[in-house]
């Protein structure tokens, strides 16, 4: 009898603390998809401040950035999470591409070195996130190995995924193509830069983690 009471109390308390554990929402994707732009939009909307710098030169985010305790609301529902902005995952990094983008050689070499470390850190963090928003540039072909590898790993780890097709403000954006390429996932088209359809994104975020 005493054992049963002890076990019931244990499960009650472990359940209580489990609920207290903060949800970690990861932003993943290839470089220059707009992960940090989306992170900034979320932080600006709900915290009133931005999270990180953005640039047209790929691999601007080269280390994991975390913003804690973001509380978002939709109707009578609310959701609190820690936002994890990750460096873009790539299989190739050539410092000469950064030189072509306008950096001097030393800066470019440093950026390339930091970017490779960033990719490794992003992959390591796949084991620590509870839900993931994969941010894709909707103007680019979604059928590439980096996207397939990210989504395949998340599926294998049973981590809930929402795909965001970003940059719908650009003419070449094609959300249908992303939907057709990854039919098993919910896809939301947004422009993180201009805030277009971001409300739809928040609605899908609630569906993703079901608070």
């Amino acid at each position: 009898m005493l054992d049963k009471i002890r076990s019931a109390l244990k499960s009650l308390f472990s359940g209580f603390f489990k609920k207290k554990k903060q949800l970690k929402l990861g932003l993943y994707g290839p470089p220059n998809g707009g992960k940090t732009t989306l992170a900034n939009k979320i932080c600006k909307d709900w915290l009133g401040e931005e999270m990180g710098s953005v640039s047209n030169i790929p691999h601007e985010t080269r280390e994991i950035k975390i913003k804690e305790q973001i509380l978002i609301k939709s109707g009578n529902k609310q959701l609190t999470f820690n936002l994890v902005d990750t460096p873009g995952i790539a299989t190739r990094i050539d410092y000469e591409d950064f030189v072509k983008a306008g950096l001097d050689e030393e800066e470019a070499k440093t950026r390339a070195k930091e970017a490779t470390k960033g990719v490794i850190d992003s992959i390591k963090w796949l084991d620590s996130v509870d839900a993931v928003v994969v941010v894709l540039d909707a103007t680019k072909d979604p059928l590439n190995q980096v996207n397939i590898t990210i989504l395949g790993n998340l599926q294998a780890k049973k981590i809930p995924v929402l795909i965001v097709g970003n940059k719908i403000d650009l003419k070449r954006a094609d959300i249908k193509k992303i939907e057709n390429t990854f039919p098993q996932y919910k896809v939301v088209g947004i422009s993180a830069k201009y805030g277009t359809s971001v409300e739809d994104f928040y609605t899908e975020l609630f569906n993703l983690v079901k608070p």
Binding site: I89, A90, T91, R92, I93, D94, Y95, K109, A112, T116, K117, V119, I120, I123, K124, L126, Q145, V146, T149, G152, N153
Partner: peptide, 18 residues
């Protein structure tokens, strides 16, 4: 697949770009 990317990134230098 992810281990392949990780190990590749650890080898990237001025000559080997991935």
């Amino acid at each position: 697949e992810t281990e392949l990317i990780k190990l590749t990134m650890s080898m990237v230098n001025e000559k080997f770009h991935g």
